[in-house]
Design a protein around this nucleic acid. Structure first.
Lengths: 110, 110
DNA sequence: TTTTGATACATTGCTTTACAAAGTAGTGGG
DNA sequence: CCCACTACTTTGTAAAGCAATGTATCAAAA
C-alpha cells in the first residue's frame, strides 16, 4: 500500500470520494480510513477536510452534524444528484485516460 | 476523442510524454500530434513546450536543434537514463491508482 | 488527577502542474 | 503581399493536494 504521488491524485481523488460516499453516508475521519483501505494510500487531513468543504459549497454533497458517544461531533455527508451527475461525466474521461496509458505502456514493454 | 480534464492529466502527462519520446526521438510540435493520436486529446502548446523545457532542465531528456526544409528549426528530444528511471518508478504507482479506481467503479455499478 | 493518545474538524499558506496569451520566426500558397 | 501552418519561448493564472497549526471531545494510562 504505497503512497500515491499527490499530482497523480488531482482530479481523481475528488471523484473517488464522491463514489465512496455514494456507497453509504460517511464522515471525514472515517473517509480517510476508507480511502486507505480502498488502495489510495494515506490521504492527509489537510487534503480531505478542505475537499469535503468545497464539495459541499459546490452542492455535490450535503452534510449534517451528529453527536458521537465515543468522541467529538461527526459531519455526515451524502451525495446529491449533482454529485452523481459529475461522477457520471467523469467516468468516461477516466476510462479514456486509462486506455491511452495502457496502450502507451504496452508499446514500452513490446 | 474527447478532451481530458487538465486536472486528470497532472502527473500522468509528464510520464506519457517520456514514454512517447522513448519510442523514438521527436520534437515538440510532432509530440502534440502524437499525444492526440495516442488518445490524450489535444494538449496545447502552452502545456507541451514548457513541460519539455522543464524535463530538459531536470535531465530527464536531452535535446538538439536541427534545421527543417519545410519550416522553422526543430528541437529533437531523447530520454535519458534518469528519465527512464522515473518512468519505471511511476508505473507501479499508476497501476495502483488504476486498480483502486477500478474496484471503486465496480462497487458503483453492482 | 493530570496527561497522553485517538478521534474529529477548520483554516492558512505553499508547491506543483496544466494552460491561456502573447510574441518571434521560418516556409509556402493564393 | 498576406495568410496559414509550422515551431518554439516566455509570462502569468487557476486549481488541487498537502503541511502546519489550532480547536475540541473522549477514554485510558500515568
Amino acid at each position: 500500500m504505497t503512497k500515491i504521488s499527490s499530482q497523480l491524485l488531482k482530479g481523481t481523488l475528488e471523484n473517488a470520494i464522491l463514489m465512496i460516499i455514494a456507497q453509504g453516508e460517511t464522515y471525514g475521519y472515517a473517509l480517510m480510513q476508507q480511502l486507505a483501505t480502498a488502495g489510495f494510500g494515506p490521504i492527509p487531513e489537510g487534503t480531505v477536510y478542505p475537499l469535503l468543504l468545497k464539495l459541499q459549497r459546490n452542492g455535490l454533497i450535503t452534510a449534517q452534524r451528529h453527536a458521537s458517544t465515543t468522541g467529538p461531533d461527526r459531519k455526515y455527508y451524502q451525495v446529491t444528484a449533482t454529485g452523481r451527475a459529475q461522477v457520471t461525466a467523469f467516468l468516461p474521461e477516466w476510462e479514456q485516460l486509462v486506455a491511452a496509458m495502457a496502450a502507451l505502456i504496452q508499446t514500452q514493454q513490446g
